[in-house]
């Protein structure tokens, strides 16, 4: 899946470990308007499963894509409401 969306904000949580990637992603999406997309950059390998789980268990957000790019895990979250 290629990036077919515009990134509104980027959150850099490289270095941070559980639970910070999820917690900071949540806080960052709170500041977005509906339809806007947050890019999250993490080095925590657990963030792939955690952000996926968080997005599916949370209303008002949609996980668009997750990409492993070298040491960095990139997540794309859209705010839907």
């Amino acid at each position: 899946m290629s990036a077919e969306f515009d990134i509104t904000e980027t959150l850099d949580v490289k270095g941070a470990s559980c639970p910070m990637p999820v917690v900071k992603t949540k806080n960052a999406t709170d500041d977005l308007e509906s339809g806007e997309v947050l890019e999250v950059l993490s080095t925590d390998s657990g963030s792939m499963s955690d952000i996926d789980g968080w997005a599916s268990g949370t209303e008002g957000v949609e996980l668009l894509d997750q990409v492993e790019d070298g040491d960095v895990y990139k997540h794309y979250v859209r705010k839907t409401e």
């Binding site: 559980c18 639970p19 999820v22 917690v23 949540k26 968080w54 268990g57 949370t58």
Partner: peptide, 11 residues
């Protein structure tokens, strides 16, 4: 603390 903050992130 980890579960509390994570649950808060889940709403």
């Amino acid at each position: 603390l980890i579960l509390a903050s994570t649950a808060a992130a889940f709403g």
